[in-house]
């Protein structure tokens, strides 16, 4: 009897510990976003109360929420211009990336045999060469091309990380399409080109969509290249403009600044979450097998 009770108590303790741990991790991950949310909608008199005033609890709304900061962000700052710049650059980069990466991914998956596998790994390794190593030579290349302060500089440079990444991602996708289907079509007299057009592309559409999403989020994540090449405020991207140019002088418009961070981050995070599993699958395939 006591043994069973002891077991039940241990189980309850384990359960509580589990939930406590889950709660801890969630709070740590989410807390900055919650803080952004509070800051975005708090009135200034509620927001700018020194941290030494222990009677004023900053974790909640002490005064009714306000849209003031959000309105300011949309009406009196260049936020929407930056969003538009980012979308345009992102769209062009995605198109370039797909044009280069879809054929390359398929070739590495099906047409190049053994050395294709090696090359695939090589392509992925180039993705690991960081912008912080390349921004200095690029600044010279961009000067030679006369592209300083131009969004074309970013359009030219961003594929350096989206192409390797997406080629590698698509290679995995195309490999997962059953080979038999393609062989059958070849036997039936289709050329390789029509096999690609009529079988591989329709079956690989989810892979291409995933590559699109990842290429776009990679563009959005970049800070280094934008900081290096773009100094004209109206030409900036969101990731550069918000942290660098929304701050006027020494006065931080924290409400609007946090609203910009929140409004930009959340949609990306949601979309990213929907696609992350495909990315993880590809990434872990090698390590798990070994």
């Amino acid at each position: 009897m006591t043994a069973r009770r002891a077991r039940r108590i241990t189980r309850t303790i384990k359960r509580v510990a589990l939930y406590a741990a889950a709660l801890f991790f969630t709070l740590f991950a989410v807390f900055p976003f919650y803080w952004m949310f509070l800051t975005s909608f708090k009135q200034n008199r509620d927001l700018y109360v020194g941290g030494t005033v222990t009677s004023h609890i900053p974790w909640i709304f002490n005064a009714p929420p306000t849209m003031e900061h959000v309105n300011l962000l949309f009406q009196q700052t260049l936020y929407l211009t930056w969003v538009k710049n980012t979308l345009v650059i992102g769209a062009v980069v995605v198109v370039i990336t797909l044009i280069l990466a879809v054929p390359a991914g398929y070739a590495l998956a099906r047409l190049t045999g053994r050395w294709g596998e090696r090359l695939g790994i090589g392509v992925f390794l180039t993705y690991l060469i960081p912008p912080t190593l390349l921004f200095i030579p690029f600044s010279r290349v961009i000067t030679v091309l006369g592209l300083q302060n131009s969004q074309w500089a970013l359009v030219l440079v961003y594929p350096t990380f989206t192409v390797p990444f997406c080629t590698w991602l698509l290679m995995g996708f195309f490999r997962s399409i059953p080979r038999d289907i393609e062989d059958q079509a070849l036997i039936d007299g289709y050329s390789r080109i029509s096999v690609i057009r009529k079988i591989v592309l329709p079956l690989g559409i989810s892979g291409i969509l995933t590559a699109t999403i990842f290429a776009f989020t990679l563009v959005l994540q970049d800070f280094v290249y934008a900081l290096t090449f773009i100094s004209a405020v109206p030409r900036m991207t969101v990731s550069l403009g918000v942290p660098v140019a929304l701050v006027r002088g020494d006065v931080f418009y924290w409400g609007s600044l946090m609203a910009a961070c929140l409004i930009t981050s959340i949609p990306i995070a949601v979309v990213y979450n929907l696609f992350i599993d495909r990315f993880i699958q590809g990434l872990t395939a090698g390590a798990v097998k070994g």
Partner: peptide, 21 residues
């Protein structure tokens, strides 16, 4: 889903959030 938010958010924007924190 919530755990993945920090990884998915653009790093520059998250960094500014932390600056404020």
């Amino acid at each position: 889903f919530l755990l993945l938010l920090p990884w998915a958010a653009p790093v520059a924007l998250a960094a500014i959030g932390w600056t404020w924190i």
